[in-house]
């Protein structure tokens, strides 16, 4: 296969991490610029090193792009399209967990997150999804809260159990 016919390697997604790293390095340097020298020293050295590496990488990508070896596509970044919606909802459920756990507490949040995730990801029948989620949440409650007395966020379930026992 000639150089011209060879498929271009998509590197668009590969740029995300170095771009974020460079942005953080610049923010870091800005955040310490008024501090005593000793507080700036290591951050400045690290930021310089990181920015140099990122610059070299961007040059490498630019050269590959100009030579026609690279494209700015995302490649396999989001995984198989067939399961993309399910995984996307799963991600949103994870964010939702962060929002509701202070109110629902560990046990109910875990049960809700597990059961809805199972259903979204295709577990059937529904009763199995609910049973596995319930078993998982209760096992977690027994081990972490009852046995280890971990200071997990409390919700209606934990308070009800406390009130009863």
């Amino acid at each position: 296969m000639s150089e011209k016919d060879r498929p271009k390697k998509p590197v668009g997604a590969d740029l995300i991490l170095p771009a974020c790293a460079a942005a953080y390095a610049l923010y870091y340097v800005w955040s310490v610029h008024e501090f005593p020298l000793e507080a700036q020293l290591s951050g400045a050295i690290l930021a310089g090193m990181l920015l140099l590496l990122v610059a070299i990488y961007f040059v490498r990508v630019a050269l590959g792009f100009l030579a026609g070896r690279y494209s700015l596509g995302l490649g396999d970044f989001v995984g198989p399209p067939a399961s993309l919606i399910g995984r996307g909802i799963f991600f949103l459920l994870m964010l939702g967990t962060l929002a509701v756990v202070p109110w629902l507490g560990f046990t109910l949040t875990t049960f809700a997150f597990l059961s809805v995730s199972f259903l979204v990801l295709g577990v059937r029948p529904v009763s199995r999804a609910l049973a596995v989620a319930g078993t998982g949440a209760l096992t977690g409650w027994l081990f972490f809260i009852v046995l280890l007395d971990t200071n997990f966020p409390e919700g209606p379930f934990e308070r009800l159990v406390q009130a009863v026992f």
């Binding site: 799963f90 994870m94 962060l98 875990t110 199972f118 972490f144």
Partner: peptide, 9 residues
């Protein structure tokens, strides 16, 4: 889901 639920806490 189990990994996410239990590692998040």
């Amino acid at each position: 889901p189990f990994i996410v639920a239990f590692t998040l806490v």
